[in-house]
Design a protein around this nucleic acid. Structure first.
Length: 597
RNA sequence: GCGCCCUUAGCUCAGUCGGAUAGAGCAACAGCCUUCUAAGCUGUGGGUCGGUGGUUCGAAUCCACCAGGGCGCGCCA
């Protein structure tokens, strides 16, 4: 490898194992070799690393796994860098590397810097990650926040793994919701002017009823009143003909709310590359085009759906509809594309949007959605498969609901009572870094309780603090060493003689550092950014443990003025730890801190 | 009624495309500060991995059924 983009020790030794295995079992199917793993062991009695290679090839080689394992172990015994190797259990081969092998990870880490862990798994494939995509009808709340953080971290993770990533926000600025918003903001406008109409009087005249009664529209209404005076009010501050104001007020409200949303996202550290307007997509005819394309493939027909099994709605009546043959692509039922008034369903428009993403050249589409959209996944998946002739990859990351806890009490969230926690509130209370890290301490598909008290605590049980503290301790050591005249620049330390790093606790840190590229690749392949957060906690724990060992054994202290070489070696390790933590925090979008006093 | 997700220590959760004796934090108990940040560390106790079958060298992981929780179920987005 000319440029070792992956300074990946695990991958390097795995490659050697496969080479040896291929000599041992020449007729082996390459597809099987892809399943050979080299993993860290849980139990120190099993060495440091274990491979399942013999188990994988046993069947096709028509030999007992234990026999292959023994042969493999013998052949690996001569490989440089391997200190001990032994067949074990049902056919594992356990490996222990030389200290030199582990020590050798430091140079590449220090030379690569934050880029350590980058790989070419994605091979430059263009991927579009769509997240947040909140209706511009109100402020973002904690639920949106989880999607924002998960989507943003996933995008960073995929970029680190070699994908060409675009971060996208889909603005639902067409349809009934934003019409209702237009009415709601008009009501705030009339109120700002001092109308005598009562809430009920106005609400009665709103088609579908008055929605979006939250306070957040008050300033927008007031602003419209300031700019337009009574120009859009009827006689005596009554309601004027909606044709005169509805579109204008709707658009003004969307613009104002979208600006708020973007401001909130900016505070969260989320800045998407592309904001796509649903209205523009539709105006361009994307939905009709996409439907025509599906029609040309014979996937559109007029038909009657069966009512939902067991639970027929009261007003159910059979109706002929324009349907998409989603069942040909794994969905449970075919899905309607037109409402009875002839306009498109949301699904139809969304097909247009996803077709537009494909048209723009993305071959991997990732949607980060709330769990309440779970029922929507199979139909969109079918649509993307149909549009791309099954060539594009479509995956949905569903984020489960977030409950908020404060003072040991659940914070009740109710739209009606207007007591839901906004993203802005959350940022005010706990800050960007804690919000982001905490949102990634659960798998996306597990429900989460966000404990505000824990997120701001400066203690061990707050993972954000814990990880940042470890990194700050690294920086503290390097500052101290610099004062004592040690070179602490990466370029300097990357050349250090690190052979002194042979204590078990030191090797433990080196093993974790060596595992970072592997972690990145695995998390990216699984589309699971939370793994990064857990890895960082493990690394921080190992580092804190080593730090404290220096209290018990002076020989393990990082800085020992009289032992220049040993100190330089440890500084290289500390600097590399800092690099890897920062590399991980960069994926999560969390700021590394230099100092915590 | 149907579909999808979830169920792991008292609590909150990890668990690598199936891997060896299932891990961490909190809480409980017992320890560690003349030394680089004790905002930390070390140790102890704690489990029928919701239940029952199945698949195989091997299952928390895959399959079937059952129980409990969440989400969704033709013209909302």
């Amino acid at each position: 490898m000319a440029t070792p983009m992956t300074a990946d020790l695990y991958a390097a030794f795995r490659d050697r194992i496969i080479e040896v295995l291929a000599r041992l079992v020449p007729e082996i199917d390459p597809a099987l070799l892809a399943r050979v793993e080299l993993t860290p062991t849980r139990d120190p009695d099993h060495g440091e690393l274990a491979t399942n290679a013999a188990l994988i090839v046993a069947k096709s080689a028509r030999q007992a796994p234990a026999i292959i394992a023994r042969a493999l172990a013998e052949a690996l015994a001569g490989v440089p860098g391997i200190a001990a190797v032994a067949p074990a259990g049902p056919g594992f081969v356990n490996l222990t590397l030389t200290p030199e092998s582990w020590q050798a990870v430091l140079g590449p880490i220090l030379r690569a810097g934050i880029a350590y862990g980058d790989c070419d798994l994605g091979a430059g494939v263009r991927v579009n990650v769509e997240y947040v995509s909140a209706n511009p009808t109100g402020p973002l709340h904690v639920g949106h926040c989880r999607g924002a953080v998960v989507g943003d971290a996933l995008a960073s993770l995929l970029a680190k793994a070699g994908y060409a990533v675009t971060r996208e926000f889909y603005v639902n600025d067409a349809g009934n919701q934003v019409q209702a918003l237009g009415w709601a903001v008009y009501w705030r406008y009339l109120q700002a002017l001092g109308t005598a109409l009562s809430d009920e009087d106005f609400a009665e005249r709103v088609p579908g009823g008055l929605q979006y009664r939250g306070e957040y529209l008050v300033p927008i209404g007031a602003d419209l009143a300031r700019r337009h005076g009574t120009a859009f009010a009827g006689p005596g501050l009554s309601m004027a003909d909606p044709a005169l104001w509805l579109d204008r007020f709707r658009d003004a409200a969307i613009a104002a709310l979208l600006a708020d949303i973007r401001a909130d996202l900016a505070r969260l550290g989320v800045a998407q590359d592309v904001f796509t307007s649903e209205r523009e997509i539709l105006a361009r005819g994307a939905a009709d085009e996409a439907i025509a394309a599906l029609d040309a493939k014979g996937l559109i027909y007029q038909g009657v759906l069966a009512p939902p099994k067991g639970k027929a709605p009261d007003d159910w009546e059979p109706r002929e509809q324009t349907l998409f043959r989603a069942t040909e692509f794994g969905d449970d039922v075919d899905r309607p594309l037109r409402k009875s008034d002839g306009s498109n369903t949301y699904f139809a428009n969304d097909i247009g949007y996803h077709a537009d993403k494909l048209r723009r050249g993305y071959t991997v589409l990732v949607d980060v959605l709330g769990a309440d959209h779970g029922g929507y996944v199979s139909r969109m998946s079918a649509a993307v498969a149909a549009l791309s002739d099954r060539r594009a990859e479509f995956s949905v990351t569903l984020c489960q609901i977030v409950h908020v806890m404060k003072g040991g009490q659940p914070v009740r969230m109710s739209k009606r009572a207007g007591t839901y926690v906004t993203l802005a509130d959350l940022l005010d209370e706990v800050g960007r870094d804690a919000v982001r890290f905490t949102m990634l301490t659960r798998k996306n598909d597990a429900q989460m309780t966000f404990d505000i008290d824990q997120a701001i605590a400066q203690t061990r049980d707050n993972p954000v603090f814990y990880v940042q503290y470890a990194q700050a301790r690294c920086r503290s050591v390097l500052r101290m060493a610099a004062e004592l005249g040690f070179g602490t620049e990466p370029a300097d330390l990357s050349e250090a003689d690190v052979s002194a790093l042979d204590d078990a606790a030191e090797i433990a840190v080196l093993r974790l550092l060596a595992g970072w590229p592997r972690l990145v690749a695995g998390a990216a392949a699984a589309r699971e950014p939370h793994r990064v957060a857990f890895y960082l906690q493990d690394l921080a724990a190992e580092f804190h443990a080593l730090w404290n060992k220096g209290r018990d054994a002076a020989t393990l202290r990082f800085i020992q003025a009289e032992q220049r070489d040993a100190t330089r070696a440890r500084l290289a390790m500390v600097a590399a730890t800092s690099v890897v933590i920062r590399s991980g925090l960069a994926v999560l979008g969390v700021t590394p801190v230099e100092e915590m006093r």
